[in-house]
């Protein structure tokens, strides 16, 4: 394991981090605003990728148009899910969780019925390789890193400065108090689902170009997202960024030495350790 490999591993790790954070932040947002573990979040990511595929390959129009539509469609899907499935179960988190499991089957099988089970792939327009000394990073990976951190930065600003963002923060800290202050939970839940799902759509659209698409591709991403938010602290956005960096770097660096399997195992072991010693996550305080 030489220096170059390690640095290459860091770059790959940052790519993973951008990818995981985009997914995990949605999970975290929905968890903290709505108190719902939305297990079909990985499927939103999958749908994002398939929409881009549809516009890019089936219709042959353009990646950019497909991408914009994928992001909007994911976000709107989020709003619909909130209104139809999750709102009736506010205050019943167990039932909402089981519903979201049902949604996993629904989304996977809708996509399976429409697009079929054979793996699909498309290419993004971000071609070429950026060279830094002897290191190489494909442009499409660089785009993921940048998109991840820019969008999360924007979300930060939104929460800090926008009125709705402040209200979201208030809800995540004290649900009952916020409701008493006349904060409109319905609207904020819809915003949380829109933003969270749209970010998953961004991740799906960008990462989809790196891998092959299958209807079950959301499962792995869901696991990573869960690891990230447990590590960073449940319901904390800055925690999700930190958790994403850690899990991402593990997934980038560990395979340099052994295998990606070991990376998953180490990620899992870290999550177990965190649960034992800091159940509120690295970033969460008591």
């Amino acid at each position: 394991m030489d220096e170059i490999n390690v640095l290459q591993g860091v770059l790959n790790g940052l790519t993973c981090a951008g990818w995981y954070v985009l997914v995990a932040v949605g999970l975290s947002l929905v968890l903290s605003i709505m108190n719902i573990v939305q297990l079909s979040h990985g499927e939103i990511y999958m749908i994002g990728a398939y929409v881009v595929y549809y516009f890019c390959v089936n219709l042959g129009i353009s990646f950019y148009l497909g991408f914009v539509i994928a992001v909007l469609a994911s976000g709107l899907l989020g709003i619909v899910l909130e209104r139809v499935f999750f709102r009736p179960f506010r205050g019943k988190p167990d039932q909402a969780l089981v519903l979201s499991i049902g949604l996993i089957l629904v989304f996977q099988n809708i996509v399976l019925a429409i697009a079929g089970g054979t793996p699909k792939s498309y290419r993004s327009p971000f071609e070429g390789v950026v060279k830094i000394g002897s290191l190489a990073l494909s442009t499409e990976r660089l785009v993921i890193i940048i998109a991840g951190f820019v969008l999360i930065g924007a979300l930060f600003l939104f929460i800090r400065f926008a009125k709705n963002g402040q209200a979201m923060l208030a809800i995540s800290q004290d649900r009952e108090g916020a409701a008493l202050q006349g904060i409109n939970i319905n609207r904020l839940s819809a915003i949380a689902m829109f933003v969270g799902c749209a970010l998953a759509g961004v991740a799906g659209g960008l990462v989809g170009a790196l891998f092959t698409l299958t209807p079950t591709m959301g499962a792995t991403v869901l696991m990573k997202g869960i690891a990230v938010i447990i590590l960073g602290g449940l319901g904390s956005i800055s925690g999700a960024v930190l958790g994403g960096l850690i899990i991402g770097l593990i997934d980038g660096l560990v395979p340099v030495v052994t295998s990606s399997y070991m990376a998953s195992l180490i990620g899992f072991a870290i999550v177990i350790l965190i649960l034992l010693f800091r159940p509120r996550g690295l970033w969460g305080h008591e």
Binding site: M223, S259, S264
Partner: peptide, 28 residues
Amino acid sequence: FPFTRLKGIYFTMVSIFFVQIIVLTVQQ
């Protein structure tokens, strides 16, 4: 012991991991 540190839906969320880890281990 580690999993039950989390309650309710959080427990459910983390319990999913176990399936993935076992399946991965068997495959590897």
